[in-house]
Design a protein around this nucleic acid. Structure first.
Lengths: 224, 224
DNA sequence: CAAATACCTTGAAATAACCTTAAGGCTTTC
DNA sequence: GAAAGCCTTAAGGTTATTTCAAGGTATTTG
C-alpha cells in the first residue's frame, strides 16, 4: 500500500509518515500543493492524505484538478477547521473522507483502511485473451483501437471462449450453457455463431483465432 | 437514486425520508435491523442510512453481515455517540461514512452525495454526459441554451443512464431501481420512457443518443 | 482413392425484441 | 371540479437477431 502525504507543516508531516511507516505503508511526502498534484497525477498511490491549508495551491484545488483528470485515488482530507461548509465542499469535490485536527492515531488508521479498502474492491469488468478484450458492460470486443459490437448470442459465446482460453469447449457445453440443457438446437447453430465471431475477430485485426478441433470442440489460439 | 433508511425511531425515520424525497431520492424505510439486512441484500440501493442502535440486530451487525455477503452499497452510519472507538469499529466494519446526531440537513445531503457518488466522479448538483446535463434540483436536462423538464420517472431513468454512460444497463436493473425490486412492471414501460427521453434529447438538439443493445439493455453514445 | 463425416459459410425465413403512438385512469393543481 | 400532467397498458408496426437449410470445403476412414 502506497500512500502520498501532502502536508506543509514539517512536524505533522513527519509524524504522519512515522505512523504510516510503522503500520507497513509505503509513504511519499511532499510539502506543497503543486508538488502534491504532480505526484498524485502519476496515479500510483492507493491513497492520498491531503491537507487543505497549503502554500501554492490549496488542498481543495488539488483535489478538484485530480478528479477532473479522472484520477480516482481515494483522498482523505485533513484540516484544522471542522466547519460544516468546508466538509460539504470537500466531499462534493470528490474527497472520500475527512479528518479534523487534532485526531487520534487509531482514527487516522481506521479511516485510511476504510478509504483504501473501498477502492481496492473494484471489480474487473472485462475478460481477455491475448490482444482482444470483451467488455462485459458494453458488449463489445476490442483490439488496439478497433472495436465492434456483438449480438447477444455472439456475446455469450465469446465470453465462454475467452474464459476457457486455450482449453477446448464442446458444442454440447455451448448449447447447454447458452440455449439451455434441454434445448434441441442443432450443432449447426453453434457453427454459425462461431463463423460470425471469426469474421468479427478479423474485422478488428486481432491475432486471436478460434481453432476447431474436429470431433471435440473449439478453443482460442494466437496466430503467429 | 434509491436509498434505504434503517431507523427505529419513527419520528426521525420520517424526517429523514421527507428530506430525501424532497431531494428526489427514492426512499424505502424499515424500522429494525433484520428487515434492514433483508432489504439491503436485494442490492438495488445506491446508499443505506443505518442507525447503530436498533432493536433486533444492531447496525454494526447488519453492516458486517452485508459486507460478508460482498454487498458494497455505500453505508452512512448514524449514531448519537461520537466516540472514537465506535467510529473506528464502524469504519473497519465497512461503513463509508459516519454522521453523529444531531446533524444539519445540509451535512446529511452532502454526505449522501459524497458516499453515493461513483468512485472518483464529481457531481455538484448535476450529472452529465457529453453535451447534456441533468440538473438534479430542477429536474431538467439541458444542452447549450436549450432545456426541457423531465417527469419523475424520466428523471430517474435519465439519471441512471447518465451515471452509467457508455456502460449498458438492463431493463431489469432499471425496474429494480426505479419501480422497486418486487414490482411487476412490464418491460414495455421502460421502453416507453426510453422513447420519451429520446424525443426530449432530440428536442434540445443534443448529440447524445440512447443506444439499445438487443437482449442486453441501453447505454449512451455520442452521435457523430 | 472414394466415401463418409464433420465442419464452414451464406442467404433467406421465422421469431422475438423493440419502438411508437394513443388512450384511459390516476393524481395534483388552480 | 375542471384542467393539466403523469403513469400505465395495449396494439400495431419495425427491425435485429436467431434459426434453418443448402451447398461447399476440409478431414478422416475403410
Amino acid at each position: 500500500m502506497r500512500i502520498l502525504v501532502v502536508e506543509d507543516k514539517i512536524a505533522l508531516a513527519q509524524a504522519l509518515e512515522a505512523i504510516l511507516v510503522e503500520n507497513k505503508y509505503t509513504v511519499d511526502t511532499v510539502h506543497d500543493g503543486l508538488k502534491g498534484l504532480e505526484y498524485s497525477m502519476s496515479d500510483v498511490y492507493d491513497g492520498i492524505i491531503l491537507d487543505i491549508m497549503l502554500p501554492g495551491m490549496n488542498g481543495l484545488e488539488v483535489l478538484r484538478n485530480l478528479r477532473e483528470e479522472r484520477i480516482s485515488t481515494p483522498v482523505l482530507l485533513l484540516t484544522a477547521k471542522s466547519e460544516i461548509e468546508d466538509k460539504v465542499k470537500g466531499l462534493d469535490y470528490g474527497a472520500d473522507d475527512y479528518l479534523t485536527k487534532p485526531f487520534a492515531t487509531e482514527e487516522l488508521l481506521a479511516r485510511i483502511r476504510a478509504v483504501t479498502r473501498r477502492k481496492g474492491e473494484m471489480e474487473i469488468d472485462g475478460v481477455e485473451f491475448s490482444d482482444v478484450q470483451l467488455n462485459l458492460k458494453t458488449g463489445e470486443i476490442s483490439c488496439g483501437g478497433n472495436s465492434i459490437k456483438l449480438g447477444l448470442k455472439e456475446f455469450q459465446l465469446m465470453e465462454m471462449l475467452l474464459k476457457a482460453g486455450k482449453q477446448i469447449i464442446t458444442k454440447e457445453q455451448i448449447i447447454d450453457k447458452i440455449w439451455g440443457y434441454e434445448s434441441d438446437t442443432e450443432y449447426n447453430n453453434v457453427e454459425v455463431y462461431i463463423s460470425f465471431i471469426r469474421k468479427k475477430l478479423q474485422h478488428i485485426h486481432s491475432k486471436v483465432q478460434i481453432k476447431t478441433t474436429r470431433g471435440l470442440g473449439y478453443s482460442l489460439e494466437e496466430k503467429n
